[in-house]
Simulated assay, not measured.
Amino acid sequence: MKGLLSLLAGLLLAACGEAPAPLYLPQGEDYPETLSAWGMLHRVDGHLQQNAEVLPYDLNTPLFSDYAHKMRTVWMPKGEAAVYAEARFDYPVGTVLTKTFYYPKDEQGGLLRTNLSVYDPQRGLDLKRVRLVETRILLHQRDGWVALPYVWDADQRDARLEWAGASEAMTLVSDAGQTLAVDYQVPDANQCAGCHEERHGLGIQPLGPKARHLNKDFAYADGVDNQLVHWQQRGLLEGLPAGLAGVPQNALFGQPRAGESLEQQARSYLDANCSHCHNPQGPARTSGLLLDPATPFGIRYGRCKQPVAAGKGSGNRLVDIQPGAPGDSILIYRLESLDPSAMMPELGRSTAHAEGVELVRRWIASLEGGCS
């Protein structure tokens, strides 16, 4: 009943043109049926914006999702803060993370495959220039995290909770005018849980908002600032090392910083796209292939490593990474494949990420030594 009253109150505020207060649902399963009822995002003058108490963030190297752009936000209950740890922050109960997937549009309404961002830190997303697809919510309850998929209505007024997910065939147009067909999939709640179980048996965990992903500058409405420092200043993060000493940092995808090596760029990409499964405690640990940042580049990272039981997924290649020969590497085959029995990652894409594959190809081609 309490959850229903909160939902009704939020809807009444939204109807009056005011942003409802962010909900705090520490227990139970009485989740809002509409995204607007959460109070995290709201429409203002034709733009989708975060609530004043909600903070946007971005990642150094993000997970590829059929070329969709993503607007990410974090909210924590008043007076609560996450506790810094190099591997994973300890987020307080009540934390709400949102990730809105969208595509930029041309003047005719066509969906664009472009790296050009249309997000304005002051005004949000101009709804005339974007097509909203879905918003995923991660809510930290007392008994763990829960994943909730919301699908945007055709009129782009609101998104509705869809436990079973959704799918849609889309055509994207590149900056050069080339078309690309994608079969966009909104994961169901179980698929969300499967990808976010980074440590087997420990349930859902946030994947993106970690130190190495967040350690970058962000253009906030009041100026550019390092995200981790900004979180600390806003009271959302405790225990951040002074001066960011020793805080890990992944490479900035597409625009590497000075000094970021090709290996760091490639490993950051594999971290973001693969290590949530391929880590010592992850669902793919039995494969013996570990692509997390802590694993040194050697046989466990795939160098000259023969697959345990790849079968068709090997593409008739003999080892995961063949130094100097990306075309002979299982890793490249699986990143390029669209075969559901071979492609990696298994979920979240219906097409290959040309730019990401090219980066990993260049890195493997640069490796010396071969396999004896």
Score class of each variant (00 low, 15 high):
Cys192Met: 06
Gly223Ala: 00
Asn215Pro: 04
Leu214Ile: 10
Ile204Val: 15
Asn215Trp: 13
Gly203Met: 03
His213Tyr: 15
Arg199Leu: 07
Cys192Phe: 03
Lys216Arg: 15
Lys216Gln: 14
Gly194Phe: 10
Leu214Gly: 03
Gly223Gln: 10
Lys216Asp: 06
Asn215Gly: 06
Tyr220Trp: 15
Glu198Arg: 14
Asp217Leu: 11
Pro209Trp: 08
Asp217Gly: 07
His213Met: 15
Gln191Ser: 05
Pro206Val: 04
Arg212Pro: 00
Gly203Glu: 03
Arg199His: 09
Pro209Lys: 11
Gly201Ser: 04
Pro206Asp: 09
Ile204Tyr: 04
Pro209Leu: 06
Arg199Trp: 11
Asp222Ala: 07
Ala221Cys: 12
Cys195Thr: 05
Leu214Tyr: 08
His196Phe: 03
Asp217Trp: 13
Lys210Gln: 04
Pro206Ser: 11
Gly208Glu: 02
Asn215Val: 05
Ala219Ile: 07
His200Val: 01
Cys192Gln: 06
Gly203Phe: 03
Tyr220Asn: 10
Ala211Pro: 00
Asp217Ser: 11
Ala193Trp: 13
His200Tyr: 00
Gln191Gly: 02
Gly203Trp: 01
Tyr220Gly: 08
Leu207Asp: 04
Lys210Cys: 02
Leu202Lys: 12
Gln205Cys: 02
Cys192Pro: 02
Asp222Glu: 12
Lys210Thr: 02
Lys216Val: 09
Asn215Thr: 07
Lys216Glu: 07
Arg199Phe: 05
His213Glu: 10
Ala193Val: 10
Ala193Cys: 09
Arg212Phe: 07
Val224Lys: 15
Gly223His: 12
Ala221Thr: 12
Gln191Arg: 14
Lys210Val: 00
Glu197Met: 09
Pro206Cys: 06
Val224Glu: 07
Ile204Thr: 03
Asp217Glu: 10
Ala221Asn: 10
Pro206Trp: 03
Lys210Leu: 00
His200Ser: 02
Gly223Ile: 07
Asp222Met: 12
Glu198Tyr: 08
His196Trp: 00
Ala219Glu: 12
Gly208Thr: 02
Gly208Asn: 02
